[in-house]
Every structure is written in C-alpha cells, then in structure tokens.
Simulated scan of single mutants.
Amino acid sequence: MRCLLLNELGKPEDLIFTTLPNPKAGTGELVVDMHAAAVNFPDILSIAGKYQLKPDLPFVPGREGAGIVSEVGADVTRFKPGDRVMVQTNFGAFAEKAIAKEHETYLIPDYIDLNQAAAIGVAFQTAWFALTDRAQVRKGETVMVTGASGSVGLAAVQLAHTWGCRVLAGLTTHSKAGIAREAGADLVVDLSSNNPKEEIRRRVMELTNGDGVDIVIDIVGGEVFSGALRCLKFRGRMVVVGFTSGVIAEMKTNYVLIKNISVTGIDRTYYRDYLPEWMDEAQTQIFDYIRDERISMPIQEIFPIKDFLSAFDIIRNRKVEGKVILKIKDE
C-alpha cells in the first residue's frame, strides 16, 4: 500500500510518500481501504513528537478518515467487507489501507459521501462532549468559542446554535467572520490584541452588555485562555479543548474560587475508548443532524495525498476555515 511514513520526528516535510506491505486485521480489527483522510492540528503535534499519544517510529500519521471495509478480523460483529465506514484511529489514516478497531469505526449513512464522512468525526464528537458532558450546556445560555473558524470551533458553534444558545465566535483573523456567522454565530469577538487578558474581557462585556458568558469552549490556549476566563459569569464553565496558539495557559486557582467557576478539559479519545456506547449514540445523533441539514462541516480544500504539504500548510499557517482533506483514492 502507498502511505505517508514518518521515520524521524520533526516536521511534515519529514514525511515520505512510500510503499509498505498491506496490513492484516487482527482480533477485533478491520482493514479499511481509505478513500479520504482529514488533516488535523494534532497530526502536526504527533509528527513533532509533542502530542500526548506517541506511537513508536516509524509510523503512518492520520487520525480520521473514511473508506470501504476490505477485511474483518476475528470477533468483529458489527461490520463486514464492503461497508462504507468512518474511522477515528490514533494514527495510520494517511494510507491506502488503515487498521481500525471495531469501536473506532462507524457505519456511514447513504446520504453522506466519503469526503464529508472523513471531515465530521473528530470535530463534531469533540464539540458534542465538550458542550454536553463537560459544560452541561442548556438552552438559552451564552457560549463563546475561541478559534471558531477551525473544524472543532465550527462544530461547537453549530451545535450550540442548534441547541438554542447565543453564540459568540472568537477569532484572531477578522476575515474569517463570515464562515463563523454562517455556522450560526450571533456575534464575533476579535481575539487579536497586544493585551488579550484585558482586551478580550472588555470586548466580550461590551457585546453582552456587561453580562459575560456562561460557557467558553477554548481551542486556542495561551493568553486567549486567560482573557476568555475573565469573561465567565458566576457559575460559568470553561472547557479546554486545545492549544492551537502553541502555548499552554496557566491560571491562578483563587480566581476560580472567587468567581465560582469551573475549568475542565476534553479529550474525545477517552470517550471513544472507555464509553464506546455513548460515543456511538452521539455519532448517530450527529449523523441525524446532518441528514436534517442542521449541521455540516465545510470542506475547505481537498488535496491528492502526494500534495500533503499543501494541506499541512493551511493548518500550520492558521488559514483554516473548515476541514482540509487528503484524497487517497477515488470513490
């Protein structure tokens, strides 16, 4: 099979397009003929050796994609060869054939094509559990999403809007405001500032008539986290999703005490691995929302797998407005 292989930790430029033997399905596993795979910010971290999950070298990166089941291993009961599936693995999606465990695999409804299926899994699953489980979102609340033009941000904006919330989209690039509004954002907050800790709070308070927000879904981290934290109302909830700024924020816990707020985090892989039935239920509802045209994931660009650097450039240059896809095989 052809794939993108990493022999040494570093940058996307260190990936090589090469050929490896076809994988075989082990117990509880499937082999999927991949048609499309999404490129995500954690892929860059994995390539650099900075992500929390560190596979042994050499390895094939790629966390999500879609294709056709070609082989099933022993004890697999929910899938068969020929099924159209979406997979979310820890690595291995940037290849013509990927290994996935049964609980990492989801049957794709007929109304969703393989490119769209490759784009929706990680983003909407992350946003779903960030809002429902970690933030305990309720209809009528005000939700701010930082990094709102990326795939997880757009998913969070859409879901919060669908559930009857007032949504503020936090952006560091104002030109991306259009896609955030199309996703359902009621207001746009400019996160760019020389003093984000003070300026973000001031801007949010102006937009909310001094009320602040009930929930922050923070994808950016760094000083944006510090500014967004100060926007929370009494009993507000902050959910840490990521650190696209490259800076992990720190906070003084007395502020959490004084304002009676909570700060939690979300890593969807734990829901996938430890609560697979709950994840299946959530993904079924996500598919239903897509069918009913309540949510969708805009695909910004589709690149042939050989042009993988162009895909990574969009991510690392912070030009993301939706999902970036590698086309591995024609449908």
Rank of each mutant, 00 (worst) to 15 (best):
V239A: 00
V60I: 12
P196Y: 02
L171W: 03
A100V: 13
I258A: 08
H103I: 13
G227Y: 07
G67A: 15
R272F: 06
L15F: 07
L131D: 08
N209P: 01
T105N: 08
T244K: 03
Q300G: 04
V324I: 15
L229T: 04
M144Q: 13
Y111E: 15
K327T: 05
E277I: 13
D133L: 06
A180K: 04
R202M: 10
D75H: 07
I290L: 14
Q88F: 13
K11Q: 12
L30N: 07
L57F: 07
P304G: 09
N40T: 10
Y274P: 00
G222R: 04
V152C: 06
F41P: 00
I314K: 08
T18W: 10
A169I: 06
T208W: 03
Q300L: 06
N195W: 03
R2H: 09
E141Q: 15
T269E: 15
T269N: 13
G121W: 00
W163L: 12
K80N: 10
D133F: 01
Q52T: 08
G26F: 04
G246S: 12
I215D: 01
G246E: 07
I290F: 14
V224R: 00
L15H: 03
D313G: 06
G265H: 03
A119S: 14
A38W: 00
L9G: 03
D288S: 12
Q125D: 10
M251F: 15
